[in-house]
Amino acid sequence: MKLRLNFFGSFFTGLTLLATLIIFAILIVIIGNIVLQGHKIISWDFITKAPREGMTAGGIFPAIFGTVALVILMIIAVLPVGVMTAIYLHEYAKSESALTKTIRFAVNNLAGVPSIVFGLFGLGFFIQFVGAGMDNFFGLEVVWGQPCLMWAALTLALLNLPVVVVASEEALRAVPSEIREASFALGATKWQTIRRVVLPQALPGVLTGAILSISRGAGEVAPIMFTGAAYFLPYLPHKPTDQFMELGYHVYVMATQSPDVEATKPILYGTVLVLLILTLLLNFIAIFIRSKVRRQMRQGV
C-alpha cells in the first residue's frame, strides 16, 4: 500500500515538474524561433535606416525612434505621479481610512483594465474631449484633437500607473522602520526623513518599477492603435502633436495586412526580434536590480 501511495505521489510530483518544464519549453521555442528567423536581417543599417519599397527593404529606425519617444514621454508623466502616490499611501496615509482604501481600489482596478479599453479611453477622453477642447479654446483647426504622441503617451502612462505604484510601495516598505525612527528622534520632519533617508534607500525598487513600466509601454499595442501610432510616416515625429511609428504596431500591421507576406517576412521577423530584445533586456535589468536589492536586505547590508 505504501509503495502504491508513493508511486502515486511521485507521479503527481512528476506532473508538477512537467508543468514547469513546459513553461521553459514554451519560452525556448518562442524566443528561439524569433532569434533564428530574425537574426539574419539585423544589421546596423536595419536599425538606423528607414523602410523602403513597401516594407520589403530598408530598416525600421523610425519605429525605434517612435517607440523611444513614446516611452520617454510616458515615463515623464507616470513616474512622478506613481512615486508620489506610493509615498502618500505608505508614509502619510492612515492605513484604514476610506481615502486610502479608495486609492488602493483604484490602483488595483486600473491594473486589470484591458488594454483596448485604455485605447478607447484615449480616443474618447484625450483626443475627443481634451484635445478637441484645446483646439476649440485656442481657435485651432485640428492640432490637439487628433491621434498623436502626447495622447498615446498619456494613455500608456495611465495604463502603467499601477506598475509604478506597486513597485514603489514595495520599495518603501522595504526600508526598515528603525531608520525612520532614528531620523525622527534627531528632529527631522516627515518630509525631511523621506527625502534624505527613505527615498535614497528605496531608489532601486522604484527604478525597477520604472523599468518594468517602460518595458510594458514599449510592448503594448492596443492602447496606441487609435491614439497615435501609424504604419508609415515619411517623417520622424518632432513635436508631441505628431503621429509616430512604433515597433509593436508595426509588427501587427505588417503581419496582418501586408499584401506580400513572404517578401516582408524577413523585415517582420527582424522587427519582432528588435522589439523582443528591447523588452526582454529591460525586464532582465529590472529583475536583476530587484533580486539584488532583495538579497541585500536579507543579508542586512
Binding site: 514554451i26 519560452l27 488594454s115 518595458s215 510592448g219 503594448e220 522589439l275 523582443l276 523588452t279 526582454l280
Partner: peptide, 18 residues
C-alpha cells in the same frame, strides 16, 4: 521565478505574431 517573469515580459503582439 525569473524565467516565468521573462515569459510575462513578452509583449502580447509578439505572442500573437508567433
Amino acid at each position: 521565478k525569473p524565467i516565468v517573469e521573462i515569459l510575462a515580459g513578452i509583449p502580447s503582439v509578439v505572442l500573437g505574431f508567433f
